[in-house]
Design a protein around this nucleic acid. Structure first.
Lengths: 218, 218
DNA sequence: GATCGTTCGATAAAAAAATACCGATTAACA
DNA sequence: TGTTAATCGGTATTTTTTTATCGAACGATC
């Protein structure tokens, strides 16, 4: 209870998916959920589900299951998604626009309140209701907007420059979609997202399958 | 050499990032790369890099490093990315459009040649040079296009229906961006992509950091 | 109220992945 | 030619993650 348990990255990665399912159940009015159902939905073992839910501190009832509301609250709290965090986004290319258009972030406690770009044609426009500012103003505006999360969607060569500006602007967490490692001070956390990683796994799985080999499940 | 070595998922996920870096080096004319440089770029240990590269079968030279060209070829071959595979995409919402606009796939051996949607306003239009067809024609057109990879970007409630159509259309691999588990025959592989997973990790890291705790690096 | 099937949760075992260690090979340079 | 620094690649170890096992709690049914 007092100290922090070891955090398990795979578990944390799975939590949003649980949350998504649980929110769906809430909408339909379901109040109880048992492990087998979640396991089917997640395509993982029942025991994994129990371990995952355990980290949130929620305790289920034997023979019954878990209370959906409790789980939702606990997961949100664990992820610090209970009160929306505001973020800025740099790079309004196709990926940046996609993220700006993704309504799901609302449920994930993330509100992207402004976008930045270097393209004069884009500066001053709006993307999905958010204004696009000149990227050179990022460092100046971030503190005024009081945001602490930055999302980088610029091409790889510009990512470090943008990251530097974010750090100077007081950003403490960077969600990096550019495929480069960013140098940041120790008190800033970075999460690099490599979408092609999934494609690689898919490719290898497919190749094996077509060769008729059996492989370990993901 | 004869039998298949155990495939390590984390390694496979990292391969595209190596590849990206190596292609960059090729462009600049570098022909040799050593582990420490890659390790810095990847933000992981040197030993991990060596183990990763080992699965491709490439052997480096002590005191020198690896040949960039060899690595590029070996990784592409390992991932079956050496001759482009064609794919279709379902759902031209913001995410679907972003994927259609991502040029990087060319380097990853993926060519999305057609898109599908159910919205009459989108059907018949073009998105980044690819035509958008009525999703009801997916099952009919997929075999004629001779594609075996399908990308699902439709809202979660429609994902299973789309997947069924893809399977009937001869698709053997599905890259699923909808947050649901898909039921498919055993000879079809599915890779589910949960973008919010990374955000969850970032959130937890940030929370820990602000509490002044030390955690294990990712 | 007794029995059965279901589910939770703790402990233990297995598998997977990351890390450490160390000898061998190479280039650079005195 | 000898020495030094850098690097690879194999084996061994540790850590992390998944999977298995089992007793106890609960609801439903008879």
């Amino acid at each position: 209870m007092p100290t922090t348990k070891v955090l398990k990255l795979p578990t944390i990665r799975r939590l949003p998916t649980y949350l998504y399912k649980l929110l769906e159940m809430q909408k339909v009015g379901l109040s109880i959920v048992a492990t087998p159902e979640l396991a089917r939905y997640m395509d993982i073992g029942e025991i994994v589900v129990r371990k995952d839910l355990a980290v949130t501190g929620v305790t289920g009832q034997p023979g019954v299951g878990y209370k959906v509301d409790e789980l939702v609250a606990a997961i949100k709290s664990f992820l610090n998604w209970d009160n929306a965090t505001e973020a800025v986004l740099a790079g309004t290319g196709s990926l940046g626009r996609a993220l700006l258009g993704y309504e799901g972030f609302a449920e994930y406690g993330l509100r992207v309140i402004a976008a930045f770009d270097s393209d004069p044609d884009k500066i001053g426009t709006e993307v999905h209701g958010r204004q696009v500012f000149d990227i050179s103003r990022l460092e100046e505006l971030a503190p005024r907007l009081n945001v602490h999360i930055g999302i980088i969607c610029v091409p790889a060569p510009y990512a470090q420059t943008v990251a530097d500006a974010m750090v100077k602007g007081g950003i403490k967490a960077i969600w990096n979609f550019a495929n480069v490692s960013l140098k940041v001070p120790a008190d800033v956390v970075v999460q690099r997202e490599v979408i092609a990683g999934g494609l690689a796994v898919l490719s290898v799985k497919m190749a094996r399958r077509s060769r008729g080999e059996e492989e370990t499940e993901e």
